[in-house]
Simulated assay, not measured.
Amino acid sequence: DLHSSAIAALAVSLLLVMVRLIRRDTVKHAFSGVFGVAFGVVFAMMTGDAKDFYLPGMIYTLGLALAYIITTLAGVPLIGLILGPIFKENLSWRTRNPGRKKAYAKASWAWGLILLAKCAILFPLYWWADTSQDTTQFGWVLIALKIPPFLLAVYLTWVFLAKAPPPIDVFAEMEAEERAEKERAAAVAATTTDGSGPRHRR
Score class of each variant (00 low, 15 high):
Met58Gly: 13
Pro56Tyr: 00
Ala44Ile: 06
Asp49Leu: 15
Tyr54Met: 07
Leu64Tyr: 06
Phe43Val: 13
Val41Ser: 02
Gly48Phe: 00
Gly36Pro: 09
Met58Leu: 14
Ile69Leu: 15
Val41Asn: 02
Gly48Lys: 05
Ile69Phe: 11
Val42Gln: 06
Tyr54Lys: 02
Met45Val: 12
Tyr68Ser: 04
Asp52Leu: 04
Phe39Ser: 07
Phe43Cys: 12
Val34Ile: 08
Tyr68Glu: 02
Ala65Pro: 04
Leu64Met: 11
Met46Gln: 15
Val37Thr: 07
Val41Phe: 00
Ile69Ser: 04
Thr47Glu: 09
Phe53Val: 09
Phe43Gly: 02
Gly63Lys: 10
Phe35Met: 11
Tyr68Asp: 01
Met58Phe: 06
Met58Cys: 12
Val37Glu: 06
Thr61Gln: 03
Pro56Ala: 00
Ala38Phe: 01
Gly57Pro: 07
Phe53Asp: 02
Gly48Leu: 05
Leu64Asn: 03
Asp52His: 14
Met58Trp: 05
Leu55Cys: 10
Ala67Met: 08
Asp49Pro: 13
Ala44Gln: 03
Val42Asp: 01
Phe39Met: 15
Gly40Asn: 11
Lys51Trp: 11
Leu62Gly: 13
Phe35Pro: 05
Ile59Ser: 10
Lys51Phe: 08
Val34Cys: 01
Leu55Ile: 07
Tyr68Thr: 00
Tyr54Phe: 15
Gly57Ile: 04
Leu62Val: 12
Phe43Ala: 10
Phe39Arg: 03
Phe35His: 04
Val41Lys: 01
Val42Leu: 13
Lys51Tyr: 08
Phe43Ser: 08
Val42Thr: 12
Met45Phe: 13
Ala65Ile: 03
Val34Pro: 00
Asp49Met: 14
Leu62Ala: 15
Leu64Arg: 04
Met46Ile: 15
Phe43Ile: 07
Asp49Ile: 14
Met45Cys: 13
Tyr54Ser: 05
Phe35Asn: 06
Phe53Thr: 00
Ala65Glu: 00
Thr61Gly: 04
Val34Ser: 01
Leu55Ala: 10
Leu62Arg: 01
Thr61Lys: 02
Met45Gly: 11
Pro56Arg: 08
Asp49Arg: 15
